[in-house]
Design a binder for these strands. Structure first.
Lengths: 223, 223
DNA sequence: GTCTATACCAGGATAGAC
DNA sequence: GTCTATCCTGGTATAGAC
C-alpha cells in the first residue's frame, strides 16, 4: 500500500507509547464516526468525543481532518485483501471460493465500520482511493481472474466472467455490513446473533458455489 | 408510500406549470448532487447551480435542505419496488427470478444516482427511511418470501432462505450502480457500453439462477 | 415567483498557556 | 504532549426588493 501515505505525526520521529496509544484510539474512533456519518458528516468534535480527548489532540496527531481520513482508509485497505489469497491454481475451486466467501463474510462481521467507510468512499467517487483501485486492486483481480479462467477451461466450474464474479462476491458479502440497517429492518431484529450470522454465511457460500456451478462438495456439474 | 410525505410547496395549493417544472428540475439536480456528495456533503448552492437557478428558489419550493432530501427519497422509494411484482405463485421460478434481476439491473443502469442516494441513506443508518424499511419493505419481502418458500416446497428450486436471497439479489444488482467507480477502475474503462452492460446483466442472471439451483431454461436440478 | 444581500451558526484549524 | 479559548470560512436560511 504505497499510494496512500499515512500521516507522520508532528515531530516526524517515533513517539513514545502514550502517543502510539492515543493515535490508535483516534484511528479507531475516527473509523466508527466516518462510517456512521461519512467524511463530510463526521466532525472532528464528534471524533474527539468518541476518542475521549479534546479536539486539538486530533490535529496534533494527524494534522487535518483529511489526513486523518486518509490514515483510516490506509488502515482499512491494508486488510481489505488480506484474506483474498486463497486462489491458488492447484487448489480446489469449491474450497478456494468457499473460504474466500467465508473470509469476506467474517470481515463484514468483524469490521463493519471499516466496510462502511470503504463503501462510502467508493460510493462517492473514490476520490482518495481511486488510484489504489485502478492499480493495485486491478492487478490482483487480473491475476486471480486467470486462475478462475484456468478452472473454467479445465471444466472444473461453470463459465463465469471472473471480474463479474468478484464484483458479485464482494457485493453479496459486504452488503451484510454496509446495509445492516436494512437487513435488521426487514428481518425485524435489532441485531444478528453469531449463530444467525453463521447460518447466513453458509447460505451465501452455498448460493455462490451453486452460482459457479459447484455443489457444496465441490463436484463440478455436468454442464 | 405514506411514511414520507413530500413537501407541499409554500402556498400549499397547486401551482402553475412553471412551478412544477422548476420543482422537477430541482429534484433531478438534487438527486444527482446528493448521490455524489451524500446529504451533508451536498450544499444547497451546488444543487442550485446544478439546477441553474439561485439558491433561495430551492428554499421557496422545498423549505429546507432536509425537506428537499426527503422529497428526493420519496421519489426514489416510489420506484424502488416497482419492478418487484413479478413474483406470482403460479409463475415459473426461473422466469420470475430472471425478470426480477433484469429489472433491478436496468434500474441500476438507468437511475444510478437514485441507487446511490438510497445506498448512502441506508449505509448511514436509514435515519429518514428507517420506518419505511421496517414496515412497507418488510411486509413485501415477507409476502414474496412465501412464494419462494412454496417453490422450494414444490421442489422447483434449491433451498435458499428467501430473505437472504433478496439481500443477495439486491446487492448483486445494485453494486453496478453504487460501486460503479470501482467496477470501472478494475475493468480499466471509463464507462460501460450498453452492450457490455447487457452482457454483465446476463452474467448476473445466470449466476443468480444457478445459485437458486435453476439452469437458464428454468429446469430445477436433481437436488 | 424570482433574485440580491445578509444574518447566523457549525465546524476546521490554530495560538498559546501549561 | 495536552488542553482552553478563539479565529474564520463555508453553508443554511431568510429579509425584502422586484
Amino acid at each position: 500500500m504505497t499510494i496512500i501515505s499515512a500521516e507522520v505525526p508532528a515531530s516526524g520521529r517515533a513517539r513514545r507509547a502514550s502517543g502510539l496509544r492515543s493515535e490508535a484510539t483516534i484511528l479507531q474512533a475516527a473509523e466508527r464516526v466516518f462510517a456512521e456519518r461519512g467524511f463530510k458528516g463526521a466532525s472532528m468534535s464528534e471524533i474527539a468525543a468518541a476518542a475521549h480527548m479534546p479536539k486539538p489532540n486530533l490535529h496534533y496527531y494527524f494534522g487535518t481532518k483529511e489526513a486523518l481520513y486518509r490514515a483510516v482508509l490506509t488502515d482499512i485497505l491494508e486488510t481489505w485483501l488480506g484474506e483474498a489469497d486463497a486462489f491458488v491454481p492447484d487448489g480446489d475451486p469449491a474450497q478456494a471460493l468457499g473460504s474466500y466467501v467465508r473470509a469476506k463474510m467474517r470481515w463484514s462481521r468483524e469490521r463493519p465500520h471499516a466496510s462502511r467507510v470503504f463503501a462510502n468512499e467508493v460510493l462517492h467517487g473514490a476520490l482518495f482511493i481511486g488510484p489504489y483501485l485502478s492499480d493495485d486492486l486491478r492487478r490482483r483481480v487480473e491475476q486471480k481472474g486467470k486462475v478462475i479462467e484456468g478452472w473454467i477451461r479445465g471444466g472444473r466450474m461453470a463459465r463465469v466472467d471472473p471480474r463479474a464474479l468478484f464484483f458479485m462476491l464482494w457485493a453479496m458479502t459486504q452488503t451484510w455490513a454496509d446495509f445492516a440497517v436494512q437487513v435488521h429492518a426487514v428481518l425485524g431484529v435489532a441485531d444478528l446473533s453469531e449463530a444467525a450470522y453463521d447460518a447466513i454465511t453458509e447460505e451465501v457460500v452455498a448460493f455462490a458455489l451453486r452460482g459457479c456451478g459447484l455443489d457444496a462438495d465441490g463436484r463440478p456439474p455436468a454442464t
